[in-house]
């Protein structure tokens, strides 16, 4: 019997997630109290500059952070009514690749170089279905064809594939068991622009066909505009703004989000990349106790450098912002 999300309870609910990397010379605060919710069939974009903690959040959901040095210090990740962080390893293993799967950032290194692509896909299938090797291979061939690779390339090795084809294989592998939740970590960053568009289109089609929820990590606001219903802006391991794509594109409230957009682009501008914001993200080993963006923010006041801003709810639900200016703007609608 499958457990499904009950009414009122989110399909995925991340509560107060804290991830640290304990290295020899420092403790890196990669994720600091992140809360995120995701409904069934929804696509959530995680946007933020490099080192913001996006990959760390996604890997926490599957519990595949490199340990050592990574440690999940705190938090709950509710998925289908179960707290993944409290499940025994064996149970998590049965979820990985089956109910939740992940597309990794770099297709060039995500595949095992000495196994055929087909066997890598059918490995995932056989792990979660008690079927014969031959049947699993048949399904793997089908998956390859679904992502637009001829089935006869089943016995090829990754080195015989181009980058775009490797990414398709990675996607085929992630979708092989028809996951309910897909974590796509910059699925197109390593690809050139034409192939990017193809891969995105394919992901969208597949999402429609399989009805999966997606967390899409990206630097690229154009991709967010195209793919996502909800957006979370991540800065220094925190969600600084969360809302529907419309909210973020047209009524953004956080200065960092503004910075990301530069000045004008709207939801209709598709290929706008991150504009550089002056200054640098604070050192995650040594975070300030006030607002983390205060050092770079054009509107910084005394309050920003002396107290830590809480999440503020904006008028249009479910739009939230971590900024004192928003509280003033929204008239203290907490």
């Amino acid at each position: 019997m499958e457990k499904t999300a009950q009414a009122g309870e989110a399909f995925l609910d991340i509560k107060d997630l804290v991830v640290e990397y304990h290295t020899d010379d420092a403790v890196i605060h990669a994720v600091n109290g992140v809360n995120l919710k995701l409904a069934k069939g929804e696509t959530l974009g995680l946007v933020g500059e490099t080192g913001a903690g996006k990959t760390s959040i996604a890997r926490s959901i599957l519990r595949i952070l490199p340990d050592p040095p990574a440690k999940i210090m705190k938090g709950e990740i509710w998925f289908n009514g179960e707290n993944i962080l409290k499940l025994p390893e064996k149970k998590v293993r049965s979820i990985r690749g089956d109910k939740i799967s992940m597309i990794f950032q770099d297709p060039m290194t995500a595949l095992n170089p000495i196994e055929t692509v087909g066997s890598q896909i059918s490995e995932a299938i056989r792990l979660h279905n008690s079927i014969s090797r031959a049947d699993a291979n048949k399904q793997a061939v089908q998956m390859l064809e679904t992502v637009g690779i001829p089935g006869k390339r089943f016995t090829n090795y990754p080195l015989e594939f181009s980058g775009g084809m490797k990414q398709r294989v990675v996607i085929a592998m992630a979708l092989a068991c028809k996951p309910e939740l897909l974590l796509a970590d910059e699925p197109t960053t390593a690809l050139d622009v034409t192939i990017q568009a193809q891969v995105l289109e394919m992901m969208r089609d597949l999402q429609k066909d399989f009805g999966a929820s997606v967390i899409l990590i990206t630097h690229d606001l154009g991709i967010v505009a195209e793919m996502c219903e909800k957006v979370a802006i991540i800065y220094a391991g925190e969600v600084v703004e969360y809302g529907t794509a419309e909210d973020i594109f047209d009524h953004r409230a956080h200065p960092y989000t503004e910075g990301l957009f530069g000045s004008i682009p709207t939801i209709h501008t598709k290929t706008k990349r991150l504009n550089p914001i002056r200054g640098m993200m604070p050192d995650p080993a040594n975070l300030p106790s006030c607002c983390r963006f205060a050092g770079r923010c054009p509107y910084t006041t005394d309050e920003c450098t002396s107290s830590y801003p809480e999440m503020v709810e904006c008028k249009s639900q479910p739009h939230t912002v971590r900024c004192v200016r928003a509280r003033v703007k929204e008239g203290g609608s907490q």
Partner: peptide, 23 residues
Amino acid sequence: IRQDYVVTARAKGQIEGKVIYGH
């Protein structure tokens, strides 16, 4: 064991022994 494909294998739900000795 630091390579990405090892994480991929884990993310598929493969058991640790197979990840280490098989991949």
